[in-house]
Amino acid sequence: MYRELAALLRREYLRWVRAPMWIVAGLMMPILYLALFGQAFDLGKLVPPNPQAQAGLSSALLGAPDYFSYFAVGMVGMVAVTSSLFAGTGVIFDKQLGILQRTISTPARRSVIFASSLIFRGFLVVLPIFIVLGLARLLAFIPGFTGLTVVENVGPAGVLEIVVGILAISMAFTSLFLAFGFLFTRVESYFGVVNLLNLPILFTSNALYPAGTSPLWLQHITAYNPISLAVNVMRENFFGASYYAYPAYVYLGGLLAWAAALILLALALGSRALKTK
């Protein structure tokens, strides 16, 4: 089982490293967002410098010391969606090229074939997330740049919550889009649905701007959006709990439920696609 998994992961890896533009584009995108959008757009500058207005800003940013810190965490949610958009394309190409037929004609277990896609595609999401977080934090130490400023003391439990949260949000979106990869046989159909989904998912979250300004019905959606949940887990650990109704682990629980549900969805469509007809 281990050898089968290793063989499949190696194939995915080799395909990946042989498309350098793909890697560069995939990693550059979040870095560009951080460097351009994050640096250029400072909500704080729009607010008058009197203490009352500043307190209002701090509350709108849910305790984050500046908009960039708020935004950098939100980038994690954004990167989770944008990097997983392609998660299902590998399966579709494998179907079209007959590679999937070859794979399922071997004694390798279906669960291993499924797991290899999920693991590798998940890795392609987790990787840029950590790069973005690391880079944002790094910028805080470089003069002339605004970086991610962490206000709270994040203990081991907090670090664990954050890492599990990142893995969960990555798995959630990887599974969602992988599921569509198993469902469709044409890239056109796949991207039709993926494009329909990705912006609403992103913009009904509190990743990029505070939710407080939106209408109530939208705020309800936002509260359950998996990106919001992931972002809450991180912001609460980084910037303090005073603006949150629940402790971070509650949001993490919700996020894990999303991840589990979406993995099950992918598993259902995956086993259907890998099954003998």
């Binding site: 499949l8 190696r10 194939r11 080799l14 004694p107």
Partner: peptide, 16 residues
């Protein structure tokens, strides 16, 4: 995208 040998290695791996 894989070489001939790599294709064979993947196949061998799939047979354990």
């Amino acid at each position: 995208e894989l070489t001939g040998r790599e294709n064979m290695e993947v196949a061998a791996g799939l047979f354990g």
